[in-house]
Structure formats: structure tokens, C-alpha cells
Design a protein around this nucleic acid. Structure first.
Lengths: 230, 230
DNA sequence: TCGTGTGAATGACTTCACAGCC
DNA sequence: GGCTGTGAAGTCATTCACACGA
């Protein structure tokens, strides 16, 4: 066998499991807290118990980022933080346009810590002229008609949609016209875009469904549980 | 060695796959649109092509709700809508308290269509006295100290947390004190609650991670691929 | 023929089990 | 002893294949 020494991360070449991606930010947040209080090392077991996850799972997730740990010592907190940042692309700043300056849009513009994830909302847009020319959390609100041109000129490639469902498609069309690469869609509506554009939907109704059903089941359960035994 | 006695795994308490739960609202929305334009029947194939999902998957999801279809005809739109509502518990109105009257909280209070899902936000609470005694989207904002007492008195069992991460645990504690049954947590922080309380986290950073990584990968990909043929 | 219903095959993710290291 | 690293086993979800019915 060839004496292959360490091989740098190539794992990222072939699709990363989405569940893993969704857990990495949880580790990231915990790690930052640990660093805050001066810890320099951490083990999967510890992360697991803290976050109520299986330690092996944590280890596999970390393996994806290319970080290697040392037995007994565990992982280096700083190294892990950097690895996750790099893996997710949070080490590089990405400028974004936000469409829809309602309260949801305002909430996102003021969301703390997006900057740490490399997300920089540089401007907002709205159809309503009354909302334009204002400044929210330091960002200018412009009329939506200016979006495509400005987007191309500033080379912004990321769009966030926070308009009502009925206007989501129109917003998406304008972003596509501006040459968008990825869209984070908060409107409860399916948007149609060319295949090259990456879309992630943040559909509150989907999450609500999970919660509603669990609650419904729990209520039904507790109603019929008083009598039955195992 | 006889390992543990045969455990007759409780099929009575058949857990519903979460992916299925997250897709049902998509069908629900589409079905309502279809009803709007006067359609009375629909097939899995149609739902599948419209939502870009596999038809068999749609069929299995629908099967979960207990609806039966007829060959050639497909499913009855109205019947299906009712079945999904009942299955998710959206046919019964649930009153909720919202903690954190910032812009995110305001956005949720004004979210259209929660009523159709049986979700009724009856009041909001905040620590900031300046935000109290106001009325947002028809709902009163009260001081957070009133939460537990009012919650018990009004028998509200559902809580929504839209406070900053640093105050999430405090908000959760008050909800627990008020006898909460389920919590929808929008704060980017893990909250600790008794096991009996159902929690669903709406962590934006988790979604952002998925999007960021896809985008990063796509950029890296197109950089090394753009030069090659065609 | 088209569409439902179902059981079996594939694939994705998680959990287990153990080897190696400190 | 604890902890990483890894391949194997197991579990859950999606996709395939086909029988049956209008």
C-alpha cells in the first residue's frame, strides 16, 4: 500500500448530508461560547451531552469539516471554529439584497450575528414608495424597480425574499434578472427559478405542521392514557 | 444469553416521519389554490409535477392522513384538505402567547393565514416597558411579569419565543411556569425545558448553513469547471 | 390507459462495535 | 481510563415494480 499521509478534506467534493449541515451551526455556537469562557479543548462526548446528540454523530459531522482530533485531548476549539467557518463558507463575506421591507425584513436586517456568518445585507427593496428612502438598521431601502440594475452593478449574488406570498414570484423574477445565484425565500409560496439558482425555503407553515401534529398527538395520548397501562 | 425480553414495539404510537409532516403544508396550500379555481379532483401525479416531488412519495404522504382515493379520479380536493387539517390538528383553534415584541414578533403577529392553521396569537409580552401597553395587529403587548399568571388563567398552552438569544432561557422558564405544552423557539439558542414540553427550534443559522455551503460549493465548482470544455 | 395501493429494493443517515492512541 | 477514527450493522425514507380497478 502506498504510504499516503494526511489527505486534505476532499470529502466535500461529493454531497454533504443536509442533516450534518444543519447541525454544524449548533456546534459552532457552542464552540464560540466555550472560547468565550477560555476553554481551548473539547471532546465529542462533551458536545454531545450538551446538545443532546449522539457523540459518534458529532464525530462524523466534525470529520466532514476535515478537522482531526487527538485522543484524550479531543479537538482544539479554535481550530474547529475555523474549520466550520471555512467549510460553510462563513469565512468569506457575502453581500445580499433583501426584498420586502416589512417587519420580517426589518427583523432580518437587525438580526445579530449574520455578519459572523459572512452574511452582509447591504440594501433592502420594497414596492411601497412610503417604505423607500428610509434607513433601517443602517441599510437603505430603495424602490424595487432599481433592484436588477443595482444588483448587477454591485455584483451582489445573494437574495433574501421577505415579501407576502402573492408577490414572491415577482421578487424572485427581479432577483433572477439581476443575476442572483442563491435565494433564501421566507415567503410561504413556491417560487419558480432557473435550475442554476439555488433556493432554500424557510416556510414557517412546514415547521408549524411538525409542532401542531406533535401537540395534537400528545393531547390525544394523554386523554386516553389515564386508563390504559403498558 | 437472553438479551432483553421481546419488546413489542409500540406500533400503536406510530411516529409520523417528519419529512412527511413538512410536506403536508405544501400539499395543503396547493389544494386550497385548486379549490379556489373550482377544481374538485386531483391526482398524486399532478401534485407531484406541480411541487417537483415524486408521485409515489405524495401518495404515501396522503396515505398517512387516512384519505383514500379512487383510481382514475384521484382524490377529492375538499376531502383531502379536511383530512390534512385534521391530521395536523389545524381544525382546532389553539391560542398562543408570544414572548418578545420586537420586529420578528411583530412579523409573526401579522403573519397571514396562521388562523387557517388554527394558530391564534392572543397576546404578546415584552420586558421593555416602552413596548408594553401598545397594540400590534390587534394584539395587546403586556409586561412579561404578567405572563405566567395570565397564561394559567386563560389556559393558554402554546408559546412562541421571539426574544434575543440571551433572553431565550428566561422566556422559556416563564412559559414553563405558566404551564406551557409546546414552544416554538425562534431564538438562536438552545433552551432547557422539562421533557414533557415539546420544543421546535426555528434556527435561521441552521438554514443559512445549508444555503451557504451549497453556494460555496457551487462557486468552487464553477471556478474549476468553467475552463474545461464547452 | 391512467391512477391508486402495496410490498420490495435501494439509498441516506444513524448507531454500534472495536481498533489504536495517549 | 477516556477519546478518536473507521467500517459494519441497523434504521428510516425514498424510489421502484407491479397488481388491481374504473
Amino acid at each position: 500500500m502506498e504510504n499516503k499521509t494526511v489527505r486534505p478534506i476532499r470529502k466535500s467534493e461529493k454531497g454533504v448530508p443536509e442533516p450534518t449541515l444543519r447541525r454544524l451551526p449548533l456546534y459552532y455556537r457552542l464552540l464560540k461560547q466555550l472560547r468565550e469562557v477560555g476553554r481551548s479543548g473539547v471532546s465529542c462526548t462533551m458536545i454531545g451531552t450538551e446538545l443532546k446528540l449522539d457523540a459518534t454523530q458529532v464525530r462524523k459531522d466534525i470529520e466532514m469539516t476535515g478537522t482531526v482530533g487527538r485522543p484524550k485531548v479531543g479537538y482544539d476549539v479554535n481550530e474547529l471554529i475555523c474549520a466550520i467557518e471555512k467549510f460553510l463558507g462563513w469565512d468569506i463575506s457575502t453581500e445580499a439584497f433583501l426584498v420586502g421591507a416589512g417587519s420580517l425584513g426589518e427583523a432580518l436586517m437587525g438580526y445579530p450575528g449574520f455578519a459572523e456568518c459572512g452574511l452582509d445585507i447591504v440594501a433592502a427593496f420594497d414596492v411601497d414608495p412610503n417604505k423607500c428612502h428610509r434607513v433601517i438598521h443602517g441599510k437603505h431601502v430603495r424602490h424595487i424597480s432599481k433592484l436588477p440594475g443595482l444588483m448587477r452593478r454591485m455584483r451582489v449574488r445573494f437574495g433574501i425574499i421577505t415579501v407576502p406570498a402573492s408577490e414572491a414570484q415577482q421578487a424572485a423574477d427581479l432577483l433572477v434578472e439581476g443575476g442572483v445565484l442563491a435565494i433564501w425565500n421566507f415567503a410561504p409560496a413556491k417560487i419558480h427559478v432557473p435550475d442554476r439558482v439555488i433556493v432554500t425555503n424557510e416556510d414557517l407553515y412546514c415547521s408549524l405542521a411538525v409542532l401542531s401534529q406533535k401537540m395534537t398527538r400528545k393531547l390525544a395520548e394523554s386523554r386516553s392514557k389515564g386508563v390504559s397501562k403498558s
